[in-house]
Design a protein around this nucleic acid. Structure first.
Lengths: 146, 146
DNA sequence: CAAGCACTTTACGTTAACGTCAACGTCGTC
DNA sequence: GACGACGTTGACGTTAACGTAAAGTGCTTG
């Protein structure tokens, strides 16, 4: 359906420059298990900017990728505002000035240390879980013996 | 409400059974960089149950550990309700029935798969960050040359 | 052509996790 | 004995991230 623009195929698209697919909001919602409302909300928050055919939104690969990254960010506890900030800077990169770029690098470093902490948290939490599970199994075993 | 039990020193307390320290709400707040309000809120939500000396709350090591685990859980994106659920089951373990224990194991398994996903998310996100950072540095370098 | 389905906007509602403020009690100390 | 630091309990406010309901548009299908 897409009005067929030349389109810069400079995508991160591994090796399949085709796939001229587009998605409706419903399709996208189902494939990521969110509601259309959520997707519209993300647009309103500046995280997505789908094409429009009249009233109707038309999503391309680029939008799908963004949504995917957004949801991943969310699972990692980033707020939509934070995610948007990164996205905006990323988009502005080509003609970004030095100050902006350095700011971006700062943000990235920040996210990075955040991840490091999360990794540590996960390791610690996994140990806790191991511990609790062991005890629970112990008690269960003891119950079984009586 | 256990009124002074002998206390099972089976704590995860590495090797220092002493340290009979207690903390005021303010101390605890400062050490974890949260507000007293937050700590009271956690109590209201059933995550903490400090001793009382008159009106005043007195926190022991046990409470401090709980708070630490709670905050860690939060950083990993768990809701206070989820955290409470685990804490409650953990406390109920000694005399827990089989059904409860199995439920606990289920929950733990669930948290575990959650962590696995987070680990994967973190790896993917780190790659994205690497990628974005590289591009940003590229642009910066190009800017410097002109 | 009516029905149904997917999409749209507008707008108010909801929940979690606190923040903020008022009004008060209790120390230690200057 | 007034003051300041810290603690307490309400109670209402706030923000993020959607949910939900109303009311309308547009296609296509029997």
């Amino acid at each position: 359906m897409s009005t067929a623009e030349p389109e810069a195929t400079t995508e991160v698209n591994g090796s399949l420059p085709q796939q001229r697919r587009t998605y409706s909001i419903g399709e996208l919602a189902r494939m990521f298990e969110v509601t259309p409302r959520t997707i519209r909300f993300y647009e309103q928050e500046g995280l997505l900017a789908p094409e429009r055919r009249g009233q109707t939104r038309i999503y391309h690969e680029k939008d799908r990728v963004r949504l995917k990254l957004t949801l991943r960010g969310k699972r990692l506890g980033f707020s939509l505002a934070e995610i948007r900030e990164v996205i905006e800077m990323y988009d502005a990169m080509p003609d970004g000035n030095a100050r902006q770029l350095k700011r971006l690098l700062e943000i990235l470093a920040d996210k990075r240390s955040n991840m490091e902490r999360q990794l540590e948290d996960i390791r610690l939490m996994q140990r806790e879980l191991d511990d609790v599970e062991m005890r629970a199994r112990d008690v269960l075993a003891r119950l079984a013996k009586e």
